[in-house]
Lab assay of single mutants.
Amino acid sequence: TDCSIVSFLARLGCSSCLDYFTTQGLTTIYQIEHYSMDDLASLKIPEQFRHAIWKGILDHRQLHEF
């Protein structure tokens, strides 16, 4: 599957948040998979999107835990 942040955000309906990640040089889900809610806040992601992205990260982690 596509591991880009572009497609990750698109699946979550949060494509408008892409610039918050790319300006930090973040391009793949693996770069953010251990981010906390505070990390997302420090990227200045608007609160209404933060929870959806956080949930997406948690779902991603569960899929990749062996």
Rank of each mutant, 00 (worst) to 15 (best):
L26S: 02
R11S: 08
Y30T: 14
L12G: 02
T23R: 12
Q24D: 05
A41K: 15
T1Y: 08
V6C: 06
T22W: 06
R61Y: 04
K44G: 15
L63E: 15
E47N: 13
I53D: 01
L9W: 00
T27D: 09
Q62A: 13
C14P: 01
E47S: 12
I32A: 02
D19N: 15
L12T: 09
R50W: 05
H34P: 04
E33N: 06
S7T: 13
S4E: 08
S36P: 02
D19Q: 07
C17M: 12
H60N: 13
I53Q: 00
T27R: 09
D59S: 10
L63M: 15
F66L: 12
G25T: 03
H51S: 15
F49K: 12
V6A: 15
P46M: 00
F21L: 02
C14V: 12
S7V: 09
H64N: 14
F66K: 04
F21W: 00
Q62G: 12
E65Y: 04
L63R: 10
L43Q: 02
V6F: 09
E47C: 08
G56A: 08
T22R: 10
S15M: 08
I57A: 03
H34W: 09
T23F: 06
I53G: 00
I45P: 01
H60S: 08
T22L: 12
H51C: 11
S15V: 08
T22C: 04
R11W: 04
E65T: 10
G13I: 01
C3D: 10
E65P: 07
M37Y: 10
Y35M: 15
R50G: 03
S42V: 13
F8P: 00
L63H: 15
D2K: 06
C17K: 02
L63A: 15
T22G: 06
I5F: 03
D59N: 07
L12E: 03
T27Y: 07
S4G: 06
T27I: 08
F8T: 02
P46K: 03
H34Q: 10
S7R: 07
Q24C: 10
R61T: 09
S42L: 14
L18P: 02
G25E: 08
S36E: 13
H34T: 07
R50T: 09
C14N: 03
D39K: 07
L26C: 04
G25W: 01
T23G: 14
Y35I: 03
T23L: 11
Q31P: 01
D2C: 04
W54A: 08
E65K: 14
L58P: 03
K55T: 07
H51V: 11
I32P: 00
V6L: 14
G13N: 13
P46F: 01
A52M: 06
D39Y: 02
F8V: 04
L9R: 01
E33Y: 06
F21V: 00
A52Y: 06
G56P: 00
D59A: 14
L12W: 08
T1L: 13
I45S: 00
H51E: 15
D38L: 10
G13S: 08
E65W: 06
W54Y: 14
D19I: 08
C3L: 11
L18I: 11
S36I: 04
G13W: 01
L63Y: 11
T27F: 09
G13Y: 03
I29H: 02
L40W: 01
S7C: 12
D38R: 11
L9N: 01
G25P: 01
L58R: 15
A41W: 06
R61I: 09
Y30S: 15
I32R: 00
M37D: 05
L40R: 00
L58G: 14
Q24G: 07
I57G: 01
R11L: 04
L9S: 01
H51N: 15
R61V: 08
S7A: 15
S16C: 15
T27S: 12
K55A: 08
T22D: 11
C17V: 08
H34Y: 07
S15K: 11
F21E: 00
F66I: 13
L43C: 04
F49I: 04
T28V: 06
M37P: 13
S36Q: 10
